[in-house]
């Protein structure tokens, strides 16, 4: 399973989201790879991804995708990530 985290320039905020998404997946005991990307690269990166995690501000920039787009409000709140990933990936 593949999860993409996206921010504007692909470093900085997406790196934080990647670390905490990995912590959430570990808690859910879900085996998935998490890839950080930027607006420019999201289409290619998400082609075979199940989920895209990003900010509410960037949802429109994703365009058409088959992945579930999940908006994360607080990037430091692993509990928020656990709840939203659990709903999306259903365990």
């Amino acid at each position: 399973m593949k999860i993409v985290v996206m921010c504007g320039i692909g470093l900085g905020t997406s790196a934080i989201l990647k670390v905490n998404a990995e912590r959430a997946l570990e808690r859910l005991e879900i085996d998935a790879s998490v890839l950080a990307t930027d607006v420019a690269g999201v289409r290619a990166a998400a082609a075979d991804a199940q989920v895209i995690l990003t900010s509410s501000e960037l949802v429109d920039a994703i365009g058409k995708t088959n992945a579930d787009v999940i908006v994360i409000n607080n990037y430091f709140d692993v509990d928020e990530l656990v709840v939203k990933l659990d709903i999306a990936l259903g365990s």
Binding site: C7, G8, I9, G12, T13, I16, L17, V39, T54, S55, S56, E57, L58, A61, N74, Y75, F76, D77
Partner: peptide, 14 residues
């Protein structure tokens, strides 16, 4: 260019 997405938690901008 990308908006306020750098406000990644309540009260905090990166």
């Amino acid at each position: 260019e990308f908006g306020a997405y750098i406000v990644i938690a309540p009260g905090l901008a990166l």
